[in-house]
Simulated scan of single mutants.
Amino acid sequence: MTRTVRFHAYGGPEVLRIDDIELPAPGPGEARIRVDAIGLNRAESLFRQGRYGRPVRAFPAGLGYEAAGAVEETGPGVTGFAPGDPVSVLPAFSMTDYGVYGEAAVVPAAALAHRPAGVDAVTGAAVWMTHLTAFGGLLEDGTLRPGETLVVTAASSGVGIAAVQLARRVGAVPVATTRTDAKRERLLAAGAAEVVVTGGLDAAGVADALRAATGGRGADVVFDAVGGAQAAGLLGALVPYGRYVLYGALGGPTLELPALDLLRSGVTVRPYSISLRTTTTGDTLRRASAFVTSGLLSGAFTPVVDRVFDLSEVAEAHRHLESGTQVGKIVLTVPHRHPRLRAPRGSR
């Protein structure tokens, strides 16, 4: 039997339960992995509440996109992976079909990446959702170039910090925004060139503050997790023909942009969805995987981990996720009651 986190009805963190279930053998194109660490994402909180994408197909339901561990068994037709291989699970599937919260999980082999030697399980579980999102939104859709200035909103999130690291790696200048001054020093330590506190500012104030932070020139690209009413201020901070990439909706279900200002600026507005890209575009996933792996090996990409919880503390971990106080990723580690397979060297 395998300890697996499931929820039997929509609700708050308290609906999460650890059940003992019989995990099926991997089918064609699938692999079963021992899970050593799990990266938490806001999408999982929304899925648990019934507010994310497609609804649960049937209760009880599992959840989770991102994990690290080792291959236990592969299904028919799977090549390139063998039992004992250290791997990370990438967010390249729907949670209505698969989940990784547990001691072990069956996932599509196409969603696995070999974990380089020296990359531990916590790092391997914390890097992929964040850095894949930054890669896709900024290099595939935002075409961020060396020497350009990038504004990153909600910059204390895992994706925000990944975007700051990516900007540094390609030679761009990252300017971070945050709602309060409490996270300023941590964002500067993470690599932000400037930090702009947006709490209490209206759209015009946001635009003025960002222009001041860029020496009056403005930003070339905005990478926005918020949307809502703040979007107008971000538009006002862009240079003519700048690029605005929206990848989240923390500010609500609408995007408020002044039509005349948009027409006069020539700004390009693009939405970015990692789930759409990674599940429908294999070329994007292949390029992104190579880019993130090279960043891990070089040390350019180091996920910031805010706090590590035990699997048994999953409800508390979700409460912390929803508090908005964290900087970087939240990770669950998975103690194993019985050895499933010998852990390969460097996998823990």
Score class of each variant (00 low, 15 high):
296 L>K: 07
314 V>F: 03
317 A>F: 15
302 T>S: 10
317 A>H: 14
316 E>L: 06
293 T>N: 08
293 T>A: 13
294 S>P: 01
296 L>A: 07
306 D>Q: 12
298 S>W: 14
296 L>G: 06
302 T>I: 01
319 R>D: 02
298 S>P: 03
318 H>L: 05
314 V>E: 04
315 A>Q: 15
315 A>T: 02
292 V>G: 05
306 D>E: 14
298 S>R: 12
303 P>A: 09
316 E>Y: 10
300 A>C: 03
305 V>Y: 07
294 S>V: 04
310 D>M: 09
310 D>I: 07
290 A>R: 14
299 G>K: 09
310 D>N: 13
309 F>C: 00
317 A>P: 01
293 T>C: 10
317 A>L: 15
308 V>E: 12
295 G>R: 04
299 G>P: 00
306 D>R: 11
313 E>T: 02
303 P>C: 02
308 V>N: 02
319 R>C: 02
295 G>P: 01
293 T>G: 01
301 F>Q: 00
292 V>A: 03
316 E>M: 01
299 G>W: 14
293 T>S: 13
305 V>I: 14
307 R>S: 12
310 D>K: 11
290 A>G: 07
309 F>K: 00
301 F>M: 10
302 T>W: 09
318 H>V: 04
297 L>A: 08
306 D>S: 14
305 V>M: 04
307 R>P: 05
317 A>K: 09
291 F>Y: 13
291 F>E: 04
314 V>A: 08
317 A>Q: 07
312 S>G: 11
315 A>F: 11
313 E>N: 06
305 V>L: 07
308 V>D: 01
309 F>S: 01
298 S>V: 00
309 F>V: 04
317 A>C: 15
312 S>F: 11
302 T>P: 01
313 E>G: 08
292 V>L: 10
314 V>P: 01
296 L>Q: 08
308 V>A: 04
295 G>Y: 11
311 L>T: 06
304 V>I: 10
304 V>E: 04
291 F>G: 00
314 V>G: 06
301 F>Y: 14
294 S>C: 09
304 V>T: 13
304 V>Q: 10
311 L>K: 00
312 S>V: 11
307 R>Q: 12
298 S>C: 07
312 S>H: 13
318 H>Q: 15
295 G>T: 00
315 A>S: 15
314 V>Q: 04
311 L>V: 01
312 S>E: 14
315 A>D: 05
304 V>G: 03
290 A>D: 11
305 V>S: 03
302 T>N: 02
305 V>C: 06
311 L>Y: 05
306 D>M: 14
290 A>Q: 09
317 A>V: 10
299 G>F: 11
293 T>Y: 15
301 F>T: 03
312 S>A: 15
301 F>H: 07
297 L>H: 07
315 A>W: 13
308 V>S: 04
293 T>M: 13
299 G>D: 02
319 R>H: 09
300 A>D: 15
300 A>W: 10
294 S>H: 15
314 V>I: 12
315 A>N: 04
300 A>E: 11
317 A>G: 12
290 A>S: 10
310 D>W: 15
298 S>K: 09
300 A>K: 01
313 E>Q: 13
313 E>H: 12
315 A>P: 02
312 S>C: 08
299 G>V: 05
295 G>Q: 06
296 L>S: 08
294 S>T: 12
313 E>I: 04
316 E>D: 14
298 S>D: 13
297 L>E: 12
310 D>E: 15
290 A>T: 08
303 P>W: 04
296 L>M: 08
